Amino acid sequence: MVWSREALIGYLYGQGAKTRENDGRKFAVPTTATHLLGGTGFPAGLFTDSRNEELSAIIFTNACAISKLSRVSISSGADTKGLRYTRIGNFFDRTPGALKGIPFCLDITSEEYKTLWPQHYEPWCAEMEVFHNPFARYPFPKALLPEVTHWFELGGEIVCESFYETSILWSQTIIQKQSDRIITLDDFVADPT
């Protein structure tokens, strides 16, 4: 589930990006694809023309797992039963030109974690995304799922509109005994030197 989000965008819209470097500065260059990678020759771009106009949208999440059930209840105050729940992953970096997410490692019972969302706990709809078909005969109404991230065409470009400021690209939940050593971001991020 970690990489399926990027693959889905490429499959649906036939678009992606590659990293290039110029004068020591890295930047993204848009790419297009007509077929998925691999030997199957499977076509990319499900939403690139009107052939699939009967399909209004794809609803996706990369966080549909048992750990989500634990995080929602525990971040809203449920008993941890002597366990520690730590979430590691990458936040979406909204800085223009950013090429990577922002690494994080947070205890889900902490105030820092709870304040990532206005409800003061992780909502069920966090990490849910709706990919709209620009050629849909019956467009999917955004108002049907107002608190999710919507991908849609605007002025010939596919844009992403998020309800929550916090957007997590991928994550993993580590469950430990309270008596175990507390893990930190340094346990997961290699030293760049």
Rank of each mutant, 00 (worst) to 15 (best):
Y11F: 15
L12T: 03
L12H: 03
Y13E: 06
G14C: 09
G16K: 03
A17M: 08
A17Q: 14
K18F: 00
R20H: 03
R20V: 00
E21D: 00
E21H: 00
N22M: 10
D23W: 05
D23F: 07
G24D: 08
G24E: 07
G24F: 05
R25P: 00
R25M: 12
K26H: 09
K26C: 02
A28I: 05
P30M: 01
P30F: 01
P30G: 04
T31F: 05
T32G: 08
A33N: 05
A33S: 12
T34E: 15
H35G: 01
L36V: 11
L36H: 10
L36N: 12
L37I: 08
L37Q: 12
L37V: 12
G38A: 02
G38P: 13
G39W: 09
G39I: 12
T40Q: 15
G41E: 07
F42Q: 07
F42M: 09
P43F: 04
P43A: 07
P43M: 05
P43V: 01
A44Y: 04
A44N: 03
G45S: 09
F47M: 02
F47R: 01
T48Q: 07
D49S: 09
R51K: 14
R51L: 06
N52R: 05
N52S: 07
N52C: 04
E54L: 13
E54G: 15
S56N: 08
A57M: 01
A57K: 01
A57W: 01
I58F: 06
I58M: 10
F60M: 06
F60L: 04
F60T: 05
T61Y: 01
T61L: 01
N62W: 00
A63I: 00
C64W: 13
K68M: 06
K68L: 09
L69E: 14
L69C: 09
S70T: 09
S70A: 12
R71P: 06
R71K: 08
R71I: 11
V72H: 06
V72D: 06
S73V: 02
I74F: 04
I74H: 03
S76C: 11
S76P: 08
S76N: 15
G77K: 00
A78C: 08
K81A: 12
G82Q: 12
G82W: 05
G82I: 09
G82A: 11
R84C: 08
R84D: 05
Y85D: 13
Y85N: 14
Y85C: 14
I88C: 14
G89Y: 01
F91D: 08
F91N: 10
D93T: 04
D93P: 04
D93W: 03
D93M: 02
R94W: 07
R94V: 04
T95D: 00
P96L: 08
P96C: 09
P96I: 10
G97N: 05
G97D: 05
A98L: 06
L99H: 06
K100P: 00
K100F: 12
K100H: 12
K100I: 05
G101I: 02
I102L: 15
I102T: 15
P103G: 09
P103M: 03
F104Q: 06
C105A: 14
L106Q: 04
D107T: 09
I108C: 06
I108K: 01
S110D: 11
E111S: 15
E111Y: 11
E112P: 02
Y113L: 03
K114S: 04
T115N: 15
L116K: 07
